[in-house]
Design a protein around this nucleic acid. Structure first.
Lengths: 203, 203
DNA sequence: GTCTATATTGAGATAGAC
DNA sequence: GTCTATCTCAATATAGAC
Protein backbone atom coordinates (compact mmCIF):
# COMPACT_ATOMS: atom_id res chain seq x y z
CA UNK A 1 0.00 0.00 0.00
CA UNK A 2 1.75 3.15 -1.16
CA UNK A 3 -1.40 5.26 -1.56
CA UNK A 4 -2.19 7.25 -4.70
CA UNK A 5 0.75 7.81 -7.02
CA UNK A 6 2.49 11.12 -6.69
CA UNK A 7 2.58 13.18 -9.85
CA UNK A 8 4.90 15.93 -10.89
CA UNK A 9 3.62 19.41 -10.05
CA UNK A 10 3.21 20.35 -13.70
CA UNK A 11 1.14 17.25 -14.32
CA UNK A 12 -0.94 17.89 -11.24
CA UNK A 13 -1.68 21.38 -12.50
CA UNK A 14 -2.77 20.11 -15.88
CA UNK A 15 -5.01 17.49 -14.34
CA UNK A 16 -6.68 20.22 -12.37
CA UNK A 17 -7.16 22.36 -15.44
CA UNK A 18 -8.82 19.43 -17.18
CA UNK A 19 -11.13 18.85 -14.23
CA UNK A 20 -11.95 22.55 -14.07
CA UNK A 21 -12.88 22.50 -17.74
CA UNK A 22 -15.01 19.40 -17.25
CA UNK A 23 -16.92 20.99 -14.39
CA UNK A 24 -17.48 24.11 -16.44
CA UNK A 25 -18.94 22.11 -19.31
CA UNK A 26 -21.13 20.05 -17.01
CA UNK A 27 -22.54 23.19 -15.44
CA UNK A 28 -23.13 25.10 -18.66
CA UNK A 29 -24.18 22.40 -21.09
CA UNK A 30 -24.85 19.32 -19.02
CA UNK A 31 -22.81 16.18 -18.50
CA UNK A 32 -23.69 14.84 -21.94
CA UNK A 33 -21.68 17.64 -23.52
CA UNK A 34 -18.50 16.38 -21.88
CA UNK A 35 -16.22 14.72 -24.42
CA UNK A 36 -12.52 14.50 -24.95
CA UNK A 37 -12.99 17.07 -27.71
CA UNK A 38 -15.00 19.59 -25.74
CA UNK A 39 -12.68 19.37 -22.75
CA UNK A 40 -9.59 19.60 -24.94
CA UNK A 41 -10.99 22.62 -26.78
CA UNK A 42 -11.64 24.44 -23.51
CA UNK A 43 -8.13 23.80 -22.22
CA UNK A 44 -6.46 24.41 -25.57
CA UNK A 45 -4.91 21.02 -26.18
CA UNK A 46 -5.52 18.23 -28.66
CA UNK A 47 -8.38 15.87 -27.98
CA UNK A 48 -6.47 12.59 -27.73
CA UNK A 49 -4.20 14.08 -25.11
CA UNK A 50 -7.07 14.09 -22.68
CA UNK A 51 -6.89 10.31 -22.79
CA UNK A 52 -3.33 10.43 -21.59
CA UNK A 53 -4.39 11.98 -18.31
CA UNK A 54 -7.79 10.29 -18.13
CA UNK A 55 -7.78 7.02 -20.10
CA UNK A 56 -11.57 6.89 -20.33
CA UNK A 57 -14.36 9.43 -19.98
CA UNK A 58 -15.50 7.58 -16.89
CA UNK A 59 -12.17 8.48 -15.31
CA UNK A 60 -12.84 12.11 -16.06
CA UNK A 61 -16.18 12.04 -14.27
CA UNK A 62 -14.68 10.06 -11.40
CA UNK A 63 -11.97 12.69 -11.15
CA UNK A 64 -14.54 15.44 -10.84
CA UNK A 65 -16.47 13.48 -8.22
CA UNK A 66 -13.44 12.63 -6.11
CA UNK A 67 -11.95 16.09 -6.17
CA UNK A 68 -15.28 17.52 -4.96
CA UNK A 69 -16.28 14.78 -2.56
CA UNK A 70 -13.47 14.99 -0.06
CA UNK A 71 -13.66 18.68 0.86
CA UNK A 72 -17.45 18.58 0.72
CA UNK A 73 -17.67 15.70 3.15
CA UNK A 74 -15.36 17.61 5.47
CA UNK A 75 -17.44 20.76 5.12
CA UNK A 76 -20.63 18.85 5.87
CA UNK A 77 -19.03 17.33 8.95
CA UNK A 78 -18.01 20.79 10.12
CA UNK A 79 -21.48 22.17 9.45
CA UNK A 80 -23.12 19.39 11.46
CA UNK A 81 -20.80 20.12 14.37
CA UNK A 82 -21.22 23.88 14.22
CA UNK A 83 -23.32 26.16 16.40
CA UNK A 84 -26.13 26.23 13.81
CA UNK A 85 -26.05 22.81 12.17
CA UNK A 86 -29.14 23.05 9.97
CA UNK A 87 -28.40 26.59 8.93
CA UNK A 88 -24.87 25.76 7.83
CA UNK A 89 -25.97 22.53 6.22
CA UNK A 90 -28.44 24.55 4.18
CA UNK A 91 -25.76 26.99 3.16
CA UNK A 92 -23.81 24.09 1.70
CA UNK A 93 -26.86 22.49 0.08
CA UNK A 94 -28.05 25.72 -1.48
CA UNK A 95 -24.75 26.38 -3.23
CA UNK A 96 -25.71 26.40 -6.90
CA UNK A 97 -22.41 25.15 -8.29
CA UNK A 98 -22.01 22.22 -5.94
CA UNK A 99 -25.63 21.14 -6.14
CA UNK A 100 -25.85 21.46 -9.91
CA UNK A 101 -22.71 19.41 -10.29
CA UNK A 102 -24.04 16.75 -7.98
CA UNK A 103 -27.28 16.57 -9.96
CA UNK A 104 -25.30 16.17 -13.16
CA UNK A 105 -23.14 13.44 -11.66
CA UNK A 106 -26.27 11.70 -10.40
CA UNK A 107 -27.74 11.83 -13.90
CA UNK A 108 -24.53 10.71 -15.57
CA UNK A 109 -24.24 7.82 -13.10
CA UNK A 110 -27.51 6.56 -14.53
CA UNK A 111 -25.76 4.88 -17.42
CA UNK A 112 -22.18 4.68 -16.19
CA UNK A 113 -21.80 1.76 -13.76
CA UNK A 114 -18.36 2.77 -12.50
CA UNK A 115 -19.60 6.26 -11.67
CA UNK A 116 -22.84 4.93 -10.25
CA UNK A 117 -21.05 2.89 -7.63
CA UNK A 118 -18.87 5.77 -6.51
CA UNK A 119 -21.74 8.26 -6.39
CA UNK A 120 -23.76 5.77 -4.38
CA UNK A 121 -20.94 5.40 -1.90
CA UNK A 122 -20.63 9.15 -1.40
CA UNK A 123 -24.40 9.60 -1.13
CA UNK A 124 -24.69 6.84 1.44
CA UNK A 125 -21.76 8.01 3.55
CA UNK A 126 -22.94 11.62 3.66
CA UNK A 127 -26.50 10.59 4.38
CA UNK A 128 -25.38 8.35 7.22
CA UNK A 129 -23.38 11.17 8.74
CA UNK A 130 -26.36 13.52 8.55
CA UNK A 131 -28.81 11.01 9.98
CA UNK A 132 -26.49 10.15 12.87
CA UNK A 133 -26.15 13.77 13.87
CA UNK A 134 -29.83 14.47 13.35
CA UNK A 135 -30.84 11.68 15.71
CA UNK A 136 -29.72 13.87 18.63
CA UNK A 137 -30.41 17.23 16.96
CA UNK A 138 -34.10 16.60 16.22
CA UNK A 139 -34.99 16.77 19.89
CA UNK A 140 -32.87 19.86 20.45
CA UNK A 141 -34.80 21.64 17.70
CA UNK A 142 -38.00 20.79 19.51
CA UNK A 143 -39.22 18.49 16.76
CA UNK A 144 -41.08 15.24 17.32
CA UNK A 145 -38.75 12.48 16.15
CA UNK A 146 -41.69 10.23 15.36
CA UNK A 147 -43.17 12.78 13.01
CA UNK A 148 -39.94 14.08 11.51
CA UNK A 149 -37.40 11.25 11.53
CA UNK A 150 -33.81 12.08 10.52
CA UNK A 151 -34.20 10.34 7.16
CA UNK A 152 -37.07 12.65 6.18
CA UNK A 153 -35.30 15.80 7.29
CA UNK A 154 -32.17 14.83 5.38
CA UNK A 155 -34.18 14.07 2.23
CA UNK A 156 -36.02 17.36 2.60
CA UNK A 157 -32.85 19.41 2.95
CA UNK A 158 -31.31 17.86 -0.12
CA UNK A 159 -34.50 17.70 -2.16
CA UNK A 160 -35.58 21.27 -1.60
CA UNK A 161 -32.10 22.41 -2.53
CA UNK A 162 -32.30 20.32 -5.72
CA UNK A 163 -35.62 21.84 -6.70
CA UNK A 164 -34.63 25.43 -6.00
CA UNK A 165 -31.20 25.24 -7.58
CA UNK A 166 -32.38 23.48 -10.72
CA UNK A 167 -35.20 25.98 -11.29
CA UNK A 168 -32.80 28.81 -10.60
CA UNK A 169 -29.98 27.75 -12.87
CA UNK A 170 -32.40 26.85 -15.66
CA UNK A 171 -34.02 30.25 -15.26
CA UNK A 172 -37.50 28.84 -14.75
CA UNK A 173 -39.99 31.32 -13.42
CA UNK A 174 -41.25 29.38 -10.40
CA UNK A 175 -40.93 31.75 -7.45
CA UNK A 176 -37.80 29.95 -6.26
CA UNK A 177 -36.38 33.11 -4.70
CA UNK A 178 -39.38 33.48 -2.46
CA UNK A 179 -39.14 29.82 -1.51
CA UNK A 180 -35.42 30.09 -0.75
CA UNK A 181 -35.99 33.10 1.48
CA UNK A 182 -38.75 31.29 3.34
CA UNK A 183 -36.55 28.22 3.79
CA UNK A 184 -33.83 30.37 5.31
CA UNK A 185 -36.32 31.89 7.74
CA UNK A 186 -37.68 28.50 8.78
CA UNK A 187 -34.17 27.30 9.56
CA UNK A 188 -33.34 30.49 11.42
CA UNK A 189 -36.36 30.01 13.62
CA UNK A 190 -35.36 26.42 14.32
CA UNK A 191 -31.87 27.52 15.29
CA UNK A 192 -33.28 30.14 17.65
CA UNK A 193 -35.52 27.55 19.21
CA UNK A 194 -32.56 25.26 19.77
CA UNK A 195 -30.56 28.00 21.44
CA UNK A 196 -33.44 28.85 23.77
CA UNK A 197 -33.99 25.22 24.68
CA UNK A 198 -30.33 24.69 25.44
CA UNK A 199 -30.20 27.78 27.65
CA UNK A 200 -33.16 26.50 29.57
CA UNK A 201 -31.41 23.22 30.21
CA UNK A 202 -28.22 24.90 31.35
CA UNK A 203 -29.90 27.26 33.75
CA UNK B 1 -55.90 27.71 -37.65
CA UNK B 2 -56.77 24.07 -38.15
CA UNK B 3 -55.12 22.76 -35.02
CA UNK B 4 -52.63 19.91 -35.02
CA UNK B 5 -52.62 17.82 -38.17
CA UNK B 6 -54.57 14.59 -38.00
CA UNK B 7 -52.57 11.50 -38.75
CA UNK B 8 -53.69 8.11 -39.95
CA UNK B 9 -54.31 5.64 -37.13
CA UNK B 10 -51.42 3.42 -38.18
CA UNK B 11 -49.08 6.41 -38.09
CA UNK B 12 -50.40 7.50 -34.73
CA UNK B 13 -49.70 4.03 -33.38
CA UNK B 14 -46.15 4.05 -34.66
CA UNK B 15 -45.51 7.49 -33.21
CA UNK B 16 -46.63 6.18 -29.86
CA UNK B 17 -44.39 3.15 -30.11
CA UNK B 18 -41.45 5.43 -30.81
CA UNK B 19 -42.28 7.61 -27.82
CA UNK B 20 -42.69 4.53 -25.62
CA UNK B 21 -39.26 3.32 -26.69
CA UNK B 22 -37.76 6.74 -26.02
CA UNK B 23 -39.22 6.84 -22.50
CA UNK B 24 -37.92 3.37 -21.82
CA UNK B 25 -34.41 4.32 -22.87
CA UNK B 26 -34.50 7.53 -20.85
CA UNK B 27 -35.55 5.65 -17.74
CA UNK B 28 -33.08 2.79 -18.07
CA UNK B 29 -30.01 4.45 -19.51
CA UNK B 30 -30.60 8.17 -19.21
CA UNK B 31 -31.53 10.76 -21.80
CA UNK B 32 -28.06 10.78 -23.29
CA UNK B 33 -28.59 7.23 -24.52
CA UNK B 34 -31.47 8.36 -26.72
CA UNK B 35 -30.47 8.39 -30.38
CA UNK B 36 -32.18 7.63 -33.63
CA UNK B 37 -30.27 4.36 -33.60
CA UNK B 38 -31.12 3.26 -30.09
CA UNK B 39 -34.80 4.12 -30.51
CA UNK B 40 -34.96 2.40 -33.90
CA UNK B 41 -33.32 -0.73 -32.50
CA UNK B 42 -35.85 -0.96 -29.69
CA UNK B 43 -38.81 -0.60 -32.06
CA UNK B 44 -37.28 -2.82 -34.74
CA UNK B 45 -37.03 -0.33 -37.59
CA UNK B 46 -34.15 1.32 -39.42
CA UNK B 47 -32.53 4.29 -37.79
CA UNK B 48 -33.18 6.94 -40.43
CA UNK B 49 -36.87 6.16 -40.37
CA UNK B 50 -37.06 7.69 -36.92
CA UNK B 51 -36.28 10.99 -38.63
CA UNK B 52 -39.33 10.62 -40.80
CA UNK B 53 -41.62 10.75 -37.78
CA UNK B 54 -39.42 13.04 -35.71
CA UNK B 55 -37.22 15.20 -37.94
CA UNK B 56 -34.80 16.03 -35.14
CA UNK B 57 -33.94 14.45 -31.81
CA UNK B 58 -35.33 17.57 -30.15
CA UNK B 59 -38.70 16.69 -31.65
CA UNK B 60 -38.46 13.27 -30.04
CA UNK B 61 -37.90 14.75 -26.59
CA UNK B 62 -40.61 17.33 -27.18
CA UNK B 63 -42.94 14.49 -28.14
CA UNK B 64 -42.24 12.71 -24.87
CA UNK B 65 -42.75 15.91 -22.89
CA UNK B 66 -46.02 16.85 -24.59
CA UNK B 67 -47.55 13.42 -24.39
CA UNK B 68 -46.83 13.34 -20.66
CA UNK B 69 -47.57 16.95 -19.83
CA UNK B 70 -51.22 17.17 -20.78
CA UNK B 71 -52.61 14.29 -18.71
CA UNK B 72 -50.28 15.13 -15.84
CA UNK B 73 -51.44 18.73 -15.68
CA UNK B 74 -55.02 17.47 -15.62
CA UNK B 75 -54.19 14.97 -12.90
CA UNK B 76 -52.51 17.66 -10.81
CA UNK B 77 -55.54 19.92 -11.21
CA UNK B 78 -57.81 17.09 -10.08
CA UNK B 79 -55.55 16.34 -7.10
CA UNK B 80 -55.57 19.97 -5.99
CA UNK B 81 -59.37 20.01 -6.15
CA UNK B 82 -59.80 16.68 -4.36
CA UNK B 83 -60.77 16.01 -0.77
CA UNK B 84 -57.12 15.49 0.23
CA UNK B 85 -55.16 17.85 -1.97
CA UNK B 86 -51.67 17.41 -0.50
CA UNK B 87 -52.06 13.66 -0.16
CA UNK B 88 -53.06 13.22 -3.78
CA UNK B 89 -50.47 15.68 -4.98
CA UNK B 90 -47.86 13.60 -3.20
CA UNK B 91 -49.14 10.43 -4.80
CA UNK B 92 -48.52 12.02 -8.17
CA UNK B 93 -45.14 13.45 -7.21
CA UNK B 94 -43.90 10.19 -5.71
CA UNK B 95 -44.56 8.19 -8.89
CA UNK B 96 -41.10 6.91 -9.85
CA UNK B 97 -41.66 6.75 -13.61
CA UNK B 98 -43.13 10.20 -13.99
CA UNK B 99 -40.64 11.87 -11.68
CA UNK B 100 -37.62 10.12 -13.16
CA UNK B 101 -38.72 11.11 -16.64
CA UNK B 102 -39.19 14.70 -15.56
CA UNK B 103 -35.71 14.76 -14.05
CA UNK B 104 -34.26 13.41 -17.28
CA UNK B 105 -36.12 16.00 -19.34
CA UNK B 106 -34.92 18.70 -16.99
CA UNK B 107 -31.35 17.53 -17.46
CA UNK B 108 -31.68 17.19 -21.22
CA UNK B 109 -33.17 20.67 -21.42
CA UNK B 110 -29.87 21.92 -20.05
CA UNK B 111 -28.29 21.91 -23.49
CA UNK B 112 -31.31 21.84 -25.77
CA UNK B 113 -32.83 25.31 -26.06
CA UNK B 114 -36.05 24.16 -27.73
CA UNK B 115 -36.69 21.66 -24.98
CA UNK B 116 -35.63 24.08 -22.31
CA UNK B 117 -38.29 26.57 -23.26
CA UNK B 118 -41.07 23.98 -23.29
CA UNK B 119 -39.99 22.41 -19.99
CA UNK B 120 -39.86 25.87 -18.45
CA UNK B 121 -43.39 26.59 -19.63
CA UNK B 122 -44.75 23.39 -18.14
CA UNK B 123 -42.85 23.88 -14.88
CA UNK B 124 -44.11 27.44 -14.54
CA UNK B 125 -47.73 26.63 -15.36
CA UNK B 126 -47.90 23.72 -12.95
CA UNK B 127 -46.17 25.68 -10.21
CA UNK B 128 -48.57 28.58 -10.65
CA UNK B 129 -51.54 26.24 -10.38
CA UNK B 130 -50.15 24.72 -7.19
CA UNK B 131 -49.29 28.06 -5.61
CA UNK B 132 -52.74 29.48 -6.42
CA UNK B 133 -54.49 26.60 -4.76
CA UNK B 134 -52.09 26.56 -1.81
CA UNK B 135 -52.77 30.21 -1.04
CA UNK B 136 -56.15 29.20 0.35
CA UNK B 137 -55.17 25.69 1.45
CA UNK B 138 -52.32 26.74 3.74
CA UNK B 139 -54.72 28.26 6.24
CA UNK B 140 -57.04 25.28 6.09
CA UNK B 141 -54.15 23.01 7.02
CA UNK B 142 -53.52 25.18 10.04
CA UNK B 143 -50.16 26.38 8.78
CA UNK B 144 -48.82 29.89 9.19
CA UNK B 145 -48.67 31.37 5.69
CA UNK B 146 -45.84 33.69 6.73
CA UNK B 147 -43.69 30.79 7.81
CA UNK B 148 -44.68 28.33 5.09
CA UNK B 149 -45.57 30.31 1.97
CA UNK B 150 -47.03 28.39 -0.98
CA UNK B 151 -43.80 28.68 -2.96
CA UNK B 152 -41.86 26.84 -0.25
CA UNK B 153 -44.44 24.11 0.15
CA UNK B 154 -44.55 23.54 -3.60
CA UNK B 155 -40.76 23.38 -3.81
CA UNK B 156 -40.67 20.98 -0.87
CA UNK B 157 -43.23 18.62 -2.38
CA UNK B 158 -41.39 18.43 -5.64
CA UNK B 159 -37.90 18.44 -4.19
CA UNK B 160 -38.46 15.71 -1.63
CA UNK B 161 -40.02 13.58 -4.36
CA UNK B 162 -36.94 14.21 -6.54
CA UNK B 163 -34.57 13.17 -3.79
CA UNK B 164 -36.45 10.05 -2.79
CA UNK B 165 -37.18 8.85 -6.30
CA UNK B 166 -33.66 9.40 -7.55
CA UNK B 167 -32.10 7.55 -4.62
CA UNK B 168 -34.66 4.79 -5.02
CA UNK B 169 -34.28 4.21 -8.75
CA UNK B 170 -30.49 4.41 -8.52
CA UNK B 171 -30.59 1.90 -5.68
CA UNK B 172 -28.65 4.11 -3.28
CA UNK B 173 -28.77 2.98 0.30
CA UNK B 174 -30.00 6.20 1.93
CA UNK B 175 -33.03 5.18 4.01
CA UNK B 176 -35.38 6.60 1.41
CA UNK B 177 -38.11 4.09 2.30
CA UNK B 178 -38.18 5.32 5.86
CA UNK B 179 -38.30 8.91 4.64
CA UNK B 180 -41.12 8.19 2.20
CA UNK B 181 -43.19 6.52 4.90
CA UNK B 182 -42.65 9.49 7.22
CA UNK B 183 -43.62 11.92 4.47
CA UNK B 184 -46.87 10.03 3.92
CA UNK B 185 -47.64 10.20 7.64
CA UNK B 186 -46.92 13.92 7.83
CA UNK B 187 -49.33 14.56 4.97
CA UNK B 188 -51.98 12.28 6.48
CA UNK B 189 -51.82 14.26 9.70
CA UNK B 190 -52.19 17.51 7.79
CA UNK B 191 -55.22 16.18 5.95
CA UNK B 192 -56.81 15.10 9.24
CA UNK B 193 -56.17 18.52 10.69
CA UNK B 194 -57.82 20.14 7.70
CA UNK B 195 -60.91 17.95 8.03
CA UNK B 196 -61.24 18.74 11.73
CA UNK B 197 -60.85 22.47 11.14
CA UNK B 198 -63.45 22.47 8.39
CA UNK B 199 -65.92 20.58 10.56
CA UNK B 200 -65.43 23.11 13.29
CA UNK B 201 -66.24 25.93 10.90
CA UNK B 202 -69.33 24.23 9.57
CA UNK B 203 -70.77 23.46 13.00
C1' DG C 1 6.88 11.14 -19.40
C1' DT C 2 4.35 13.79 -22.93
C1' DC C 3 1.96 14.36 -26.97
C1' DT C 4 0.10 13.33 -32.09
C1' DA C 5 -1.46 10.74 -36.14
C1' DT C 6 -4.82 7.79 -37.07
C1' DA C 7 -8.35 3.91 -36.65
C1' DT C 8 -13.00 2.76 -35.73
C1' DT C 9 -17.49 3.36 -34.44
C1' DG C 10 -21.74 5.63 -34.13
C1' DA C 11 -24.18 10.07 -34.23
C1' DG C 12 -27.72 13.19 -36.80
C1' DA C 13 -29.60 14.21 -40.96
C1' DT C 14 -30.99 14.25 -46.16
C1' DA C 15 -31.98 12.96 -50.83
C1' DG C 16 -34.38 10.22 -53.20
C1' DA C 17 -36.47 5.28 -54.09
C1' DC C 18 -40.77 2.84 -53.67
C1' DG D 1 -47.22 8.63 -47.46
C1' DT D 2 -43.53 5.44 -46.09
C1' DC D 3 -39.03 3.84 -45.98
C1' DT D 4 -33.74 3.17 -47.38
C1' DA D 5 -29.09 4.22 -49.15
C1' DT D 6 -25.84 7.24 -48.05
C1' DC D 7 -23.41 11.60 -46.51
C1' DT D 8 -20.89 14.17 -43.02
C1' DC D 9 -19.06 14.79 -38.82
C1' DA D 10 -17.90 13.99 -34.04
C1' DA D 11 -17.04 10.49 -30.47
C1' DT D 12 -13.74 7.29 -27.93
C1' DA D 13 -9.66 5.18 -28.01
C1' DT D 14 -4.89 3.29 -29.41
C1' DA D 15 -0.38 2.83 -31.38
C1' DG D 16 3.46 4.86 -31.70
C1' DA D 17 6.45 9.34 -32.35
C1' DC D 18 9.17 12.60 -29.71
Amino acid sequence: MTGPRRRRPATEAKVNRLLDATEEIMLREGYAAVSSRSVAAKVGIQAPLVHYYFPTIDDLFLGVLRRRAEPNVDRMAAALDSEKPLREWWQLAADPRGTSLFVELLAAANHRPALREEVGKVARDVRRMQVDRLSTLVGEYGLDAAEFPPALIAAAMQGIAFALVSDQTAGYDTAHEEAAAAMARVLDRLEERRVRRRRRVKL
